[in-house]
Design a binder for these strands. Structure first.
Lengths: 341, 341
DNA sequence: CTGAAAGCGCTTACAG
DNA sequence: CTGAAAGCGCTTACAG
């Protein structure tokens, strides 16, 4: 029923291996033979069976990318970078969304290992240590992305969270803000603590004592921004600026401020990490630290390919610089200028 | 090196088929044997090879979803609906982004057929006819999504574009707007023409002659909204309301209006299809027709599973109702109330 | 430049 | 309830 290599070989009057060699460009095939084979492939409408070839060759030419939230444009942009770079290298990419859920992550990983992917890029959830150590034991090639994990020594690509947070905080301080509320992710996620570290470093450099009550933590979600903002606004004295450690948190902050009747930046300043590029189209909705999402993706593929080529490589760390965008318009006509540089 | 079924069988002191039966719950295995097998699996850290089992059984338990733009939250929500429903049924889903590019679509399809996916759900690009007819010839089970294609008779799930556009237009007319500019997608995409049809039906019902100059077409992109808005604003008399046929077009419209110094809704009204749910969080940024994206996804899986179970089924069409949301806030504090119902 | 044989790791189909 | 044999559709390794 389905056309196989054997059928093509019969039609072309050659052996199966010769067809394999012609189609995969592995080994020599005379031009005349090649032509006959191509004709046979075309008339029979042959589609090779990658299951069979992968089973035999022990390579699938398939990589996987596990991200923690596909609804976040940061991650879709990373995914685009990964995919483009992978295709250039002749690999396909399977995109999986773990939703920050260790159970989902474990299920996907099991599925992927059963499919015998050649390697994977993973933005770990908050409890990935064991899963990753298991991968190390199985010598599955993988690259960490965005987040470091204690006890796991592997290639990693990430943005400069600490540096970015430092710049964002400095920007606020130099503009004259003094009491900056920091709303960040879980303490178990390295980006979250790195951003706190950058924030503290800037305060320190400017000789401002830091108030622990100004630092709020929670999942990288809208609700975290909303609730933390209400908490921070209840403080006395209340913050004159807020630092949202990611874009979703910033949305929650905006919502809470609106409900409280506070305007940005007239009543309170707001800055954040990442934005919503397709909505804001190059004009971030707040003063923002932008991470080079697509480059993070392509760098991860580069590390992974290097490792596939040479499994004994020492683990490497790639830290990509961030960009401070001081801004301006929210995409709907209302000006949200926080400060100018 | 890698642990195989044979190794597990040897360790458990049974044959390979028995292990296969135990792990797949196919056929009887005595409780005692099963226990020994489970122990062996655990101590050997066995991971089944799905390539081998798929090759033999001719089923991969894998479906594919081709969408035209993963950066559009409408499609990520659809994908979520597809994936959740697929997992419940024991299938994995491979998500592919065609970017409205027929070449990319063809490349993905080739890759997927080589991997022998069991079926696929496809939101076709503007030139998919041949590719889809090829799928029909190969009897690959597939379901169309969002868009009909001329000359292709297949299962399809879509939102009620015509009905939604009718309601949106009626809403404007009943609020008192009379000259409504329509900015829609390419005429080769069925949703685009359905939305025009709904728009025309509403005008007709209210006894308003339609002006062809008020209908602009282009890709479902921001730039289309931007350019068409400038064109429409140059008309005399100029429109008092604009209808953006999708969310990205609406962003371009907003940008153009802002550049022209026009406020929504004081100077001109604006309505659209779909919004940016994660950014606006339930409060659409404009008066909007919402399509039930997740339900479109799960319905597609249902049709596809039915077809896998029974390939001779007559093609079915599922049209899901849309919802009119009259609104309000743009997510950054500025009110964009267009009209009230 | 081309081929015959063996095998990747499973499951099907047939027995008992 | 369990097993021996065959085969899914390719590619590897060895020859010529």
């Amino acid at each position: 029923m389905t056309v196989t290599l054997r059928d093509v070989a019969a039609k072309a009057g050659v052996s199966a291996i010769t067809v394999s060699r012609a189609l995969n460009n592995t080994g020599y095939v005379s031009p005349h033979t090649r032509e006959r084979i191509n004709d046979a492939v075309a008339t029979l409408n042959y589609i090779p069976n990658d299951l069979a070839s992968s089973l035999r060759s022990k390579r699938t030419q398939l990589l996987a990318l596990l991200v923690t939230d596909v609804t976040n444009p940061f991650w879709t942009t990373v995914a685009r970078g990964v995919e483009d770079a992978a295709i250039d290298a002749g690999y396909g990419v399977i995109l999986c969304n773990t939703d920050e859920d260790p159970a989902k992550e474990a299920r996907y990983l099991d599925l992927l290992l059963r499919r015998r992917i050649d390697g994977l890029i993973i933005a770990p959830t908050t409890e990935s240590t064991e899963i990753l150590q298991d991968l190390e034991r199985r010598t599955v090639p993988f690259v960490l992305m965005d987040r470091l994990v204690d006890g796991v020594c592997a290639d990693i690509v990430r943005g400069d969270s600490r540096g970015g947070a430092y710049h964002l905080t400095m920007h606020l301080l130099q503009t004259g803000y003094k009491r900056i509320g920091m709303i960040t992710g879980p303490s178990s996620v390295s980006t979250s603590e790195d951003r706190v570290a950058g924030y503290l470093a800037a305060l320190d450099e400017m000789g401002i004592a830091h108030d622990p009550a100004l630092i709020c933590r929670g999942p990288y979600r809208r609700s975290t921004g909303y609730e933390a903002t209400l908490d921070l606004l209840a403080q006395n004295p209340r913050p004159d600026a807020l630092f949202a450690a990611n874009n979703f948190i910033a949305l929650g902050v905006l919502e809470a401020l609106r409900n409280e009747g506070l305007r940005v930046p007239e009543d309170i300043a707001l800055v954040c990490f990442d934005d919503f590029p397709h909505v804001t189209a190059g004009a971030p909705f707040l003063t923002t630290i932008l991470q080079p999402a697509a480059e993070i993706g392509s760098a991860a593929i580069r590390l992974l390919l290097d490792r596939l080529a040479n499994p004994d490589l020492e683990p490497r760390e790639v830290v990509l610089p961030t960009e401070l965008l001081v801004h301006t318009s929210c995409g709907c006509g209302k000006e949200l200028r926080v400060a100018s540089s």
